[in-house]
Design a protein around this nucleic acid. Structure first.
Lengths: 331, 331
DNA sequence: CTGTTAGCGCATTCAG
DNA sequence: CTGAATGCGCTAACAG
């Protein structure tokens, strides 16, 4: 590892460490000549900035922490890319944590990020786990929630319109003539599962269809679960002609089970997903789903966070991004 | 942000900062009584370790850097999970970087990780980009390559058997009676694309089938590309009865194009992918592919790296993990 | 078992 | 425009 320090550069250049620091950081109060000379010496010596030292002294890390519930979920991955694009373009580092939908991991991650003295935090919080959020408030560290929202606390957040997503999907199915629509719900840690459910109900209500509780099924969010669930639902002979799944993942599991039972999609059962992940377009049949501008979601959240960090954010507390229905061949 | 320091705890506890440090770090040479008392005071005061300060002084960060070519690729995501599982269980942090398959980003990421003084590095390197690897050697920083291998330098690496992967897929198709097998190759930055191609050729050779260069197609690794490629290949009326794709992603693009042209899989064209990503099982038809123990790949790499960091790694320079053919319904 | 001293590499005063 | 002094929070080395 490089052990070159400012002091060593200073010695070679016959200047003070202070001057070297100013040259390297592009500060004023230095002649272009000496600056150029110092930069060149630093380069020759293979100088590498010591980040811990800089952070310790300046009390800033130029690093933001990001906590998602699952990196291997393509949804999160795209959001993260949006975040990285913004952060990197402004010379901020990103520390990415994966809570795996587990609350203890979320806490652990927050602790780790605190220890690292990140300048700010971006997170997709667990449902109803207010403690962490309150802690963030108490610590007075800038943070922005992504796809998370707590009515009881005053936070900044960037969310897609969950209710609208549920509504669009449900309304579309109703317009296609369906009345008995199965709602396959998301995992309990997903803060938006309930809201999407509200959208589902409001879709029904608008068309005067009565809500039937037996048509709502809980899952843990995995494809495997929804597959088994649909198997069971079919063997229970539950009466339904369409499915609205909380996510494309869940929709995929349902479709697999439906097809295995010899049912044709969309002839026998129509299916709508949510999120528009990459595979939605190449599924068989291509999945009708609700598209969320994921990259945008991450980008906006990062932009707001960086503004908060620099101390001049005055925008809305909650930025809502509108989803869009993508009609393919599963309905 | 918490501003409690060791000194403040020391003052409250009426001991020296050093004693506090020892208590917090579980070091010997401290009485259980005072230790307990100090821990309790630290807790009460809401003490949060200052990582930059600790790193600066101890010259260790308990952090490893990971560079992958694309997080949103489910393959990488699972490898990363394996890495995190090992790292976190040993109280190491992970800084994850996404090079997006771009060399400048890989360099940038390495630089950033150096600045952060990570204790070690895990990376899936670009093909034939030796410079970075040589730099890592020169900097004498512990590192392990994942799915990357350079014959010209002596590095530790964990790889799946690329040649075998290509062979298994090809041999399977040949046993199914195919002789004209299209090979849809991976992106140029994937170090294993060539080796898999070797496996493809050795599969042909073993069965005495002559190699036909016109059956090899290059791609950039995206589904969109392979989709377009297959469209074109079909319109060119190229003669083939089976496809072996470098990745399941590429296979998915091919399948979409094949189906759109009215071809039945596997009746008209058989398709084999590689990697066994989650969606392979639910594609239509379920995809025959080569499974790679991805989680294992990340786990092993992290274990080796941590052993190297602690200075007692004596194992093999290259650990090869065997892939396995998963026969589904696309062949 | 505990305290004292020193300094990691850097940026921030404040002098010149 | 540049230099000297100071200390961020912590741990390592040495005394007691």
């Amino acid at each position: 590892m490089s052990n070159i320090t400012l002091a060593e550069i200073a010695k070679v250049a016959n200047v003070s460490t202070n001057t070297v620091s100013r040259a390297l950081n592009g500060k004023p109060d230095i002649s272009p000549k000496t600056k150029k000379r110092i930069l060149r010496i630093a380069e020759d010596l293979g100088y590498v900035l010591n980040f811990p030292a800089k952070s310790l002294r300046s009390r800033k890390t130029a690093t933001i922490g990001v906590i998602v519930t699952d990196i291997s979920n393509p949804f999160s991955a795209t959001v993260v890319k949006g975040i990285q694009d913004v952060a990197w373009s402004r010379n901020y580092n990103v520390i990415l944590c994966d809570s795996r939908g587990r609350y203890d991991r979320e806490r652990q991650s927050i602790k780790m990020l605190f220890q690292n003295r990140v300048d700010g935090l971006l997170l997709r919080p667990m449902e109803k786990k207010l403690l962490d959020i309150q802690m963030l408030h108490k610590q007075a560290i800038p943070f922005v929630l992504i796809e998370g929202y707590f009515s009881s606390v005053n936070t900044d957040s960037v969310v897609s319109d969950w209710v609208l997503g549920g509504f669009l999907a449900t309304d579309h199915l109703i317009k296609k003539g369906h009345k008995r629509i199965l709602y396959v719900n998301g995992p309990s840690y997903a803060a938006n599962a309930y809201q999407r459910f509200i959208g589902y109900k409001s879709g029904l209500r608008q068309s005067g269809i009565r809500f039937d509780e037996s048509l709502v099924k809980a899952t843990d969010g995995t494809m495997q679960y929804s597959y088994q669930l649909m198997k069971k639902t079919l063997s229970d002979k539950l009466d339904f002609t369409a499915v609205f799944a909380f996510s494309d993942y869940l929709a995929a599991g349902c479709i697999k089970a439906l097809k295995e039972s010899g049912l044709k999609i969309p002839k026998d059962v129509a299916v709508v997903g949510h999120d528009d992940i990459e595979f939605a377009a190449i599924m068989e049949p291509p999945l009708t789903t609700v598209h969320i501008p994921r990259h945008q979601l991450g980008k906006k959240a990062a932009e707001i966070l960086l503004e908060k960090i620099s101390g001049n954010y005055k925008g809305p507390r909650t930025l809502v991004i509108k989803p869009e229905l993508i009609v393919r061949e599963s309905t």
